[in-house]
Design a protein around this nucleic acid. Structure first.
Lengths: 158, 158
DNA sequence: TATTGTTATACTCTATAACTATA
DNA sequence: TATAGTTATAGAGTATAACAATA
């Protein structure tokens, strides 16, 4: 259908970002839209995992049992929210909470066999997920992007 | 206080990212923690603005009146959520909705004088906000990061 | 019949306060 | 008294469905 509207409101016209063009946070949010839909296709839908759940499984798979305190730090989660997250994964039979014999206050979060299988399968799917991003970024740019993001986050590059 | 805990659960020990190390989406989320707290300090608290509110003001400041449809596209917001966002800013006296005389279905979102003043003041604060990030990234890296993020988002670099 | 925008609603995400238990 | 973790709760952020007005 044909529109008869003032030219400055043409929805097809590109919109100037103005000061936003130099704001990293804005571009971070826009880029996250791409990586999120990519995640949903490769990991979210196929494995029934949220981003944070996938991240948590990867940490347990790579490090072995961890305390909730450590997981909260690594995932930038508050303790109450981590607690609810652990509840969900425990109810799905993916992990269990074990008491730390050396300190009754703390726990070991341990992957069950089922949890380890899901962690391994989803880890394998992460490769193709990143490969799809290489349609937009060269491999070197992909690596460069990760390094810059690490520096921005104040964490050593992996 | 001294801890006496198994070494594999030492909270100070660094945690391996494993497969996560190569996942851009994970690093994007971690970097966003930094940019968000930076935003809060420079713009959120001083001006009483949320990120999305600041972005919307910048778009109106740089482009003049825009239709909600255009704003929703540029901000990656659904129509209902944009509607609520406009309500909030209108109730603060920062903008008004005007009917489009050429098409009664659409609107022009127009900054009020008060809205323009706030937009200009917050735009001025965005410079120092980004400058603070240059403690972690050189100016060239800052620009490079933005370009890579634009490419990832599938939008032309600014 | 298609489009613009709104209302109602719900689900996820994140944060704070108050609590329990261990040390 | 301090720390690890939980429960309760509230506020943002985001999505869908149903609707009103206009084309």
């Amino acid at each position: 259908m044909k529109r008869s509207v003032a030219p400055d409101l043409d929805p097809a016209a590109s919109i100037a970002l103005g000061p936003l063009a130099d704001v990293v946070g804005y571009h971070l949010a826009q880029a996250a839209v791409t990586t999120y839909s990519n995640f949903e296709r490769h990991l979210g839908k196929p494995f029934g995992l949220r981003k944070i759940e996938f991240s948590l499984l990867m940490l347990l798979l790579s490090n072995g049992p961890l305390a909730p305190k450590q997981l909260a730090g690594a995932l930038t989660l508050t303790a109450p929210n981590l607690s609810l997250l652990l509840d969900r994964l425990q109810n799905r039979g993916l992990l269990r909470r074990e008491r730390n014999p050396a300190d009754g206050r703390s726990q070991h979060i341990v992957l069950t066999d089922k949890g380890r299988r899901l962690a391994r399968a989803s880890a394998a799917a992460a490769g193709p997920m990143e490969t799809e991003l290489l349609q937009r970024l060269s491999r070197a740019e992909h690596a460069m992007l990760i390094e810059l993001l690490c520096r921005l986050a104040g964490r050593p590059a992996p």
